[in-house]
């Protein structure tokens, strides 16, 4: 699956559009990570646990999106956009959406 966030796939030609595909996941940080983050909050700096958690979650959202595109018969997703929102206390939704296309 080719993924880009431009309107086309550079160097390739889009032959068919299938419409919007999207993938999302809601993740809560778990207790251990939260404790570490609480400690880190004192001195400031990067919260590595959270960075990894969000990366994993975003990857999951992308996987779901590409799965949807695959089911549509597409071989590429273009114009991908990401969004993050906190839906509840301590939980965040990672959201990815794009256009499923067939390129050659």
């Amino acid at each position: 699956m080719i993924m880009t966030n431009v309107g086309s796939v550079p160097g390739k030609k889009i032959v068919e559009h299938f419409g919007i595909v999207q993938g999302s996941t809601v993740r809560a940080k778990h207790f251990g990570r939260d404790m570490m983050a609480g400690l880190k909050n004192l001195v400031g700096g990067e919260l590595k646990g959270y960075t990894e958690l969000l990366q994993e979650s975003r990857q999951e959202a992308m996987d779901r999106m590409s799965e949807q595109a695959r089911l549509m018969g597409a071989n590429a997703v273009v114009n991908i956009r990401f969004a993050t929102s906190s839906v509840a206390q301590g939980a965040a939704e990672l959201f990815a959406y794009g256009t499923a296309v067939k390129v050659e």
């Binding site: 909050n41 400031g44 990067e46 959270y50 960075t51 990401f82």
Partner: peptide, 10 residues
């Protein structure tokens, strides 16, 4: 993609 989560100090 690249990302970073940071927090401020006390």
């Amino acid at each position: 993609s690249g990302s970073m989560v940071v927090s401020n100090d006390y």
